[in-house]
Design a protein around this nucleic acid. Sequence first.
RNA 1: GCCGCAGUAGCUCAGCUGGUAGAGCAAUUGCUUCGUAAGCAAUGGGUCGGGGGUUCGAGUCCCUUCUGCGGCACCA
Length: 647
Amino acid sequence: MSQISLTFPDGNIRIYAAGVTAAEVAMSIAPSLAKAAISAQLDGAHWDLQWPIPQSAKISINTLKDEAPALELIRHDCAHIMARAVQEIWPDVKVTIGPVRDYGWFYDFDRAEPFTPEDLGAIEAKMKQIINAREPVRTEVWDRARAIAYYEERGEPFKLELIARIPEGEDLRMYWHGGWQDFCRGPHLAHTGQVPADGFKLTHVAGAYWLGDASRPMLQRIYGLAFKNREDLKAHQLMLEEAAKRDHRKIGREMELFHLQEEAPGMVFWHPNGWTIYRQLEDYMRGRQKAAGYREIRTPQVVDRVLWEKSGHWEAYRENMFIVEVDEDGAKEKRINALKPMNCPCHVQVFNQGLKSYRDLPLRLAEFGSCHRYESSGSMHGLMRVRGFTQDDAHIFCTVDQIQQECADFIELLSSVYKDLGFTKFDIKLSTRPDVRVGSDEVWDKAEDALQKAIERLALPYTINPGDGAFYGPKLDFKLTDAIGREWQCGTFQCDFNTPVRLEAEYVGEDGAKHSPVMLHRAILGSFERFIGILLENYAGKLPFWLAPRQVVVASIVSDADDFVTEIVTELRRAGVRAEADTRNEKINYKVREHSVGKVPVILAIGMKEVEERSVAVRRLGETRVETISLASAIATFGLEALPPQH
RNA sequence: GCCGCAGUAGCUCAGCUGGUAGAGCAAUUGCUUCGUAAGCAAUGGGUCGGGGGUUCGAGUCCCUUCUGCGGCACCA
């Protein structure tokens, strides 16, 4: 029998017989290590304790103290234990797959009856039994025929389909504990007792298509959370509660920003406070884009189908469009229009008016374009996914040679805007040519190269998504990270070689001949609706002063101060501050609480002392400290703070 | 669109096995003028998402529809 040498993390080298298992290796070092072991790292690969080690390698033994492998195994074993628990309770339920995901796992089942919350409790109890039994997890390699026979006998069609998808000749690894088994590539824990019985929690049930395919059966997916111990689980559950408190739908109600109602699903009714935020954001963007050389336009929302047929939307995007039929005077047939789902075709119409020269390029046309898309009912979500929205859209008409500069300028604008809005971290994704595409390879080469060079010149990190570009050109997507680490794709920069040709956009080149320009679709915020949702969640409603709908509330402590309160509000408004008076017959405690809950950044409390001194007591949101300053300096301070970021 | 769950006063929610709706907050009114996160009291307010059915009788059961929520699919 041949020998192998295993190198340990401390540099030690030991000799073993080939085929030794990691469990045996651990035992050879110390029985206590063998007992604590959960898996091994073999040349960096996650290795099951029971798998034979074929050749010399670097090895380290993992225990539950090794965070990453421990969590992966705990979650993966939870999936198996849950599947077993379910089948022990309901033997007719068919099992499918159960992968690890962030913070936990899920497992998809096929069962006629829906799982109820009470069922989840029963499953959890059964899982705890299995865990407490500390049953050893065993594994062996089966050949395909044996595995197929096994699952045919058990009547598990989904498992059989999974087996059929595994390439011929590959062995199947079976895992089992107790009388229950599943085929799985592993690795797994050594025994079920290594899963912390109080470190997991089943959270919810949801439908999910088999293999993610909407034409396949809908299965029931049970989600669970799993951590090393109860404390970590509790901490995570607390974090989820905190995240729920930031839900923009909840904040929107509390701050009286907007509402949605069933007569207009997916369309926002903006209230005064919410519309103030919207307008601030729009005015800010207008200023930034104007300074960056964009020219603002406005195009129709209802457009005849003829244009959509020309642009290709009628064929490719019709099911997502709101159609408007009109009885025209004297016409035999109804005229069919569509609410625009995108602005690009209309922007080309503006470009097409009058003869354009190469001297006009790059031409940057911007529109806060109101669009409507018929989003499927299940996909709508607060402000984040709506049917009526406004994009901070612009189209840059330019030559292929101008792409790089335009791209670099755009990224600089975008990163500056994100920074102003409180987002300092964002990722860039470059999507390159798909198999099915329009345009010559030469043009694609140039465009992809231009995008890549633009990012690299700015020394920004990025990842490439090969083949993920649109059929009409390569693109960049920008994903920002919010205060609690969630990522949102907002910005985009897309090259389009197709639309200008389809819609006959042309310019006269230096050579006197007509050429098609390249069209660059770009957005920074994406949609105002969604971006405001992101802002609200990022700031948990505590917007920076310049965006806050109500910036200052001036609250009287006694009614004899009311006149001075009115005077202060008037002066603040004159200085451009969104100020309101609160002279209600309530205690200052009550007013402070209400406006704090309402996320007003500054409360000015006015009592007789302030009246006499002509001063104000300033209390900022989130602080309990109160600072008394003169009225004049308050006007100056808040007038300045109310301005949007200056450039 | 699909699976599941939900839809009761402005908001949050209670209402068991069917017998004509309840709380807290908010609102209104009165009292209180009280220094930085909810002062006291009284009063008004819903026919239980819409439609249909079962029943002597339905918020409570059934069907249907809409909307919302959690996912999945979708997001050229």
